[in-house]
Amino acid sequence: MYIYPATDRELDNILEIQDLCYHEIEPESPEVIASKIYTSPDTCFIAKDNQGIRGYLLSLPSSLGNPPQLHSNTQTTEPNPNCLYLHDLAIHPNARGMGVGKLLIQHFAKIALQKQFEHASLISIQNSVPFWEKYGFKVVSADSYLQKKLKTYGENATYMECFLPQHYQIN
């Protein structure tokens, strides 16, 4: 299994995996997914083996407590980001249990630290808080501003943050 930068050539595969994985939210459009890849190509990845693309991870430089709304086109990154926001991680159902998610998350953390981001953030959906806690993310209380953004991610959306140096090292 290898990690490669995500490009528009993989967009159809990414959309297929997204459709297979998300049942509590409406999947994002091809334009929205492509905007994230174009905006931050060095922080969006795919995991691929000889069977094809097994999963993907899309992330963007951001600010703690200020994630993008779901379904929003991303054209630029914030001028003074202080974290790497993990927008989406999805694994093809037939590749679950193969360590694809762990591999993508480790690569994400490595890139974040190389870019000198000590913090990562994400929005947990579909009751995935326990999964993210295994990787060092902790639930953070949402103020009213953040609660508005969380509503775009569905009923059980939870904002989480991770102090990366505590859990990951650059190898």
Rank of each mutant, 00 (worst) to 15 (best):
I37P: 10
T39I: 05
T39F: 05
S40D: 08
P41M: 11
D42W: 11
D42S: 15
T43R: 08
C44P: 07
I46P: 08
I46N: 09
K48Y: 14
K48R: 15
D49Y: 12
D49C: 08
N50G: 13
Q51I: 10
Q51S: 15
G52E: 10
I53F: 11
I53L: 15
I53K: 09
G55H: 08
G55Q: 08
Y56F: 15
S59C: 04
L60G: 02
L60R: 04
P61V: 01
P61S: 09
P61W: 02
P61I: 01
S62V: 00
S63V: 09
S63Q: 13
L64H: 00
G65E: 01
G65Y: 01
N66K: 14
N66P: 00
N66D: 11
P67Q: 06
P68A: 04
P68E: 06
L70H: 14
H71E: 11
H71T: 01
S72K: 14
S72L: 03
N73P: 09
N73H: 14
T74M: 14
Q75P: 00
Q75M: 10
Q75N: 15
T76K: 14
T76A: 10
T76S: 12
T76P: 00
T77G: 07
E78T: 09
E78W: 03
N80L: 09
P81E: 08
P81L: 02
N82G: 02
C83N: 13
C83R: 01
C83Q: 06
L84G: 00
Y85G: 00
L86S: 00
L86A: 02
L86Y: 04
D88K: 01
D88S: 11
D88H: 03
A90D: 10
I91W: 02
I91E: 03
I91V: 15
H92T: 02
P93A: 09
N94Y: 12
A95I: 07
A95R: 00
A95G: 04
A95D: 00
R96V: 01
R96Q: 15
R96Y: 03
G97P: 04
G97T: 05
M98Q: 12
V100P: 00
G101K: 02
G101A: 14
L103C: 10
L103H: 12
L104Y: 09
I105K: 02
I105Y: 05
I105C: 07
Q106T: 05
Q106A: 06
Q106L: 09
F108T: 01
F108I: 02
A109T: 04
A109R: 06
I111E: 10
A112F: 06
A112H: 03
L113A: 05
Q114R: 14
Q114C: 08
Q116R: 15
F117M: 06
F117G: 00
E118L: 13
A120N: 03
L122G: 00
L122T: 04
I123Q: 00
I123C: 01
N127G: 11
S128W: 07
V129P: 03
V129E: 13
W132Q: 08
W132Y: 15
W132P: 05
W132E: 08
E133H: 12
E133S: 15
K134W: 06
Y135F: 15
Y135R: 02
G136C: 11
F137H: 07
F137N: 06
K138N: 14
K138T: 13
K138C: 10
V139A: 09
V139H: 13
V140T: 11
S141Q: 14
A142G: 05
D143K: 06
S144D: 13
S144N: 11
Y145W: 01
L146T: 08
K148T: 12
K148D: 12
L150F: 05
